[in-house]
Simulated assay, not measured.
Amino acid sequence: MKQAILLHNPGAGDEDHVKSDLIQAIEQEGFGCVYFSIKKDDSWKTQLDQADFIIVAGGDGTVRTVVKQLVKRNALDKKIPIAILPMGTANNLSKTLGIDNEEARETHIKNWKTSRPKRFDLGVIKNADTTDFFMESAGYGLFPNLIQAMDAEDKSGLETAKDELKFALTVLQRLVLTAEAADFWLQADGQVYQGKCLLLEVMNIRSIGPNLILSNEAETDDGVFNVVYVAEEQREAFAAYVGRLIDGENDPGFAYNTFHAAALTIDCDSKYMHLDDELILPLKNPLVLEVRENVLAFLVNDAG
Rank of each mutant, 00 (worst) to 15 (best):
V66N: 02
R64H: 14
E102S: 12
V71G: 04
M203P: 00
A240I: 12
H274E: 10
I213K: 02
T160N: 07
N91G: 07
P86S: 10
D269T: 11
F259K: 02
W185G: 00
W44C: 04
N127P: 12
V56M: 03
L245C: 09
V66I: 15
C268V: 13
D302R: 11
N127C: 09
V227R: 00
K78C: 09
L214Y: 02
L214H: 00
D60G: 05
F31E: 01
T131Y: 06
Q234N: 02
L177A: 10
E201S: 11
D183C: 08
L6F: 00
A138S: 14
K45G: 14
Q194N: 05
A168N: 03
S270V: 04
T220V: 15
T178C: 05
N226T: 05
F254T: 04
D49C: 03
V171I: 15
D42F: 11
A263C: 11
Y35C: 03
S270W: 03
F31I: 00
G11Q: 13
L93V: 14
I147M: 07
E180M: 01
G209E: 08
L275K: 04
S207C: 09
G243V: 14
Y140W: 15
G243S: 14
D42P: 13
G30S: 02
G248Y: 00
W185E: 07
A90E: 07
V288G: 04
K68Q: 14
L264A: 04
D77L: 09
A263R: 04
P282L: 02
T258F: 11
C33M: 08
A255N: 15
K110S: 14
K284L: 06
L175H: 13
K110H: 13
V202T: 11
Q191F: 09
C33T: 03
L296I: 13
A149H: 13
S115F: 04
D60T: 06
I280T: 11
L48H: 07
V291P: 01
P10L: 10
F184Q: 07
A90M: 08
M203K: 00
L199T: 10
T160L: 09
L6C: 05
V124G: 06
V300S: 05
K162E: 15
E164K: 11
V63T: 15
G13K: 12
L279E: 06
T220K: 01
G123D: 03
A25Y: 01
D16G: 08
L97V: 13
V295R: 03
V224L: 15
S207E: 11
K166D: 09
N127F: 11
I125Y: 08
G304F: 08
N301P: 07
K39I: 14
S270K: 01
N145W: 15
W44D: 06
V71N: 07
A182W: 01
R73H: 12
N294T: 13
C33A: 15
H17Y: 10
